[in-house]
Computed example of a mutant assay.
Amino acid sequence: MKFLKSSLSVFALGLLLFMLSACKINSVANEDVMARTEKTPEIVWGVKYDTRLFGMMNVETSQVEGFDIDIAKEITKEMLGDEAKATFVEVTSKTRIPLLRNGNIDAIIATMTITDERKKQVDFSDVYFDAGQSLLVKKGSEITNVKDLNSETTVLAVKGSTSAINIREHAPDAKILELENYAEAFTALQSGQGVAMTTDNAILLGMASENPNYTLVGGNFTQEPYGIAIDKGQTAFLKAVNQALEEMHKNGTYDKVYQKWFPNSTDGKVQ
């Protein structure tokens, strides 16, 4: 009997702790982010740690760096003042929405394309980077636009990607060589197996930054704009983020951050 009572007590304690934990998670998830940040000037941002130019961990400084990071820092300052803290949490394409909806992060700024499907789960800010599919070529190439790709040219893409599907639509006569990954595709471009490589301009900009003999041409021929994702119901917070972005465009902060990461380029810049 004593054993049974003891077991029931342990079970009851465990159930109570579980319920308290669940209540805490629910409380955090339903918290008014704007009201909290006004009391405690800090915004927790979900960012990529592995995307060159946008969010990349610097192993020497142990700090994450990139365009997304600097935009998040400037939004935080614009909203909450110079002393406000921008805290960064690593996210992946898989984890970012669950972390947002659970209240682990306040917003996602992680090369996230605004889509109708995602709008069912989260709200998006105004566009902060005009992403889309583009072409990477060797400097001096005769290819200056997707329309220059014809039956005599080969374009390189990653196998099974939407980029391969899109290029077939926009350059139906071109030969397409599909490789396993971006590294293989770029190596094939360097070795002359194709005249151009195609994928999102954000990825191509990263490659061009490391390989100055290559450049983007022709602008974007698809539209996949990046937005900041915010949990549904956080209307005041979303409004404040958009106001901060608008002010950054007016006072030149946005242009300054853009030029830092994409010097001498306008690919992806929001006007």
Rank of each mutant, 00 (worst) to 15 (best):
T92A: 05
D106P: 04
S125T: 00
N104M: 06
I71V: 15
L136W: 00
K73P: 04
A72N: 07
E60W: 07
T95A: 06
A110I: 03
T95F: 02
Y49S: 11
A107R: 06
G103A: 05
M57P: 07
V47I: 14
L136K: 00
L135W: 04
K73M: 11
E90G: 05
K73Q: 14
F129L: 10
I109L: 11
S125P: 03
L53Q: 14
K94H: 01
K73H: 13
R101S: 07
S62T: 13
G46K: 07
T113M: 04
I108M: 04
E74S: 14
Y49M: 14
E78P: 07
L136E: 01
L99K: 13
G81M: 14
K73R: 15
K138V: 06
N104W: 04
D70M: 12
I105S: 01
E78L: 10
R96Y: 01
D70P: 12
G81S: 13
V47M: 09
D68C: 12
T51M: 09
E78K: 15
V64I: 14
T92S: 14
A110C: 05
V44F: 03
D68R: 12
G55M: 12
P98H: 05
R52S: 13
L100M: 06
K94Q: 11
A86V: 05
S134Y: 01
G81V: 13
M57Q: 10
V44S: 12
A72M: 11
N58I: 06
D68A: 11
I71E: 05
K77W: 08
Q63W: 05
G66P: 12
M57T: 10
V137Y: 04
I109R: 08
G66H: 10
E78I: 00
Q121H: 02
M79Y: 13
T76N: 09
N58R: 06
V89P: 01
I105W: 01
G55A: 12
K119R: 08
I114G: 01
K138T: 01
V59E: 15
G81K: 14
Q133R: 05
V44W: 03
N58F: 10
S134E: 03
E42A: 08
D123N: 11
E65R: 09
